[in-house]
Design a protein around this nucleic acid. Sequence first.
RNA 1: GUGAUCGUAGCUCAGUAGGCAGAGCAUCGGGUUGUGGUCCCGAAGGUCGCGGGUUCGAGCCCCGUCGGUCACCCCA
Length: 426
Amino acid sequence: MSYRGPKGTYDVYPGGGQGQEPHERPELWAWAESVARDFFRRYNYTEVRLPVFEEARLFIRSVGEASDIVRKEMFVFHDKGGRELSLRPEGTAGVVRSYVEHGLYKLAQPVKMWYFGPMFRHERQQKGRYRQHVQIGAEVIGSADPLVDVEVISLLYNIHQALGVRDEIVYLNNLGDLETRRRFVPELRGYLKKHESELDPDSVSRIETNPLRTFDSKNANTQALLAEAPRIGDFLSEEAKGYFEAVKEGLAVVGVPYAIDERLVRGLDYYTLTVFEAKSTALGAQDTVGGGGRYNGLVQELGGPEMPGIGFGSGVERILLAANAPDEVPKLDVFFITLAPEARLPAFSLASVLRSSGLSCDLDYADRSAKGQFKQADRGGARYAVVIGDEELADGVCSVRDMTTGEQRAVSIVEGPWELIKALGV
RNA sequence: GUGAUCGUAGCUCAGUAGGCAGAGCAUCGGGUUGUGGUCCCGAAGGUCGCGGGUUCGAGCCCCGUCGGUCACCCCA
């Protein structure tokens, strides 16, 4: 094989589902995007389309120097002007950059935005994890109303449910505001240092850089130790506690089931207060379908005014992997069957007119036999086969065959395509 | 980045002990000089991931490399 797609990437291509993963099937992508798009319309979100690369320092500043994404997962490159750029590893940084750059804080707040597009992380791939993957995401900037948190979380959950994600659980936590973190982090760090010898190496290295992340460890010893560790819930300010309660109450009202997970911290540094993660047990080890959180300091951090924000990102490959994918065959309205060389141009012309009228149609381009053309019509799920051969040409008609019933009748084409269009019931 | 495991037809996979590269599905044709979805017959389709080594002889054994898969790490 002379060429292959780059490591960790995949193709979406026609193949009738033979040997294809759900996320390799074009019709499932079309379905997922249209379902998501309709949800965003109903929730009044505006689509943004942003570059897939940005200045690298944007991600370093927002996602965080100590984060794994910045430390080892960014596709960084230099352009010919010596600028250091990076393929975007996540969506929030670009959206916030755009919000600040275009002064969107002058618009009526909050500004509600969504996007659908590829993200890039240089990782070893496995089930549900690719170096290029697609995220559906939403960001709401300019409101600190806990009901916005509820809206964002329920939007994520409802999209997943509409797409058939199986066995989904939404985990929820509150990381507190900056004041909370200031008091909690030294406390946790002290505890971890005391038990340093019993921790796994990854967790030890995080004691100084980002002690909150140790909560994510899958190491059994570390987890046992953390059960006794100080809890962030005990350090929350009254405001943060009240905020958390309001979010929980809102979720109950809109019927989003959730579970509190006090160890949920997430790997991006910009989160404050609400964080959430939607997982599905239908996936492998990479069981997070979508997640996000509030980032009340980020807009200011990136040079804008003090504006709160919240958002989610959800992996479309993982959605499709965790979903009960519909097994819909794309349907063709008409397939033209030409049984004489002189029939090809009239058929081609009729197809062109039918397409203008909104019907989907196709014809044989492979010089197939009559039988082969009917098979092709059948494969395409055609409702009608329109046959044009010597006999039809002599009579100025075409033979319209209903592929479900097998009934066939002659329709005049002497006056043009209008009889045919009428017969097909447009 | 670490570990395990696997690369044979478009797809799913057989391939015995190292001895001529196979099946099913899909594709194309024929049975029906112009009629599909069922059936029957046939054809086409391969640098056995790639490179090196051992051997009279390698899909099979050895080394390397690239890629897939799964897990760790981390996340979507």
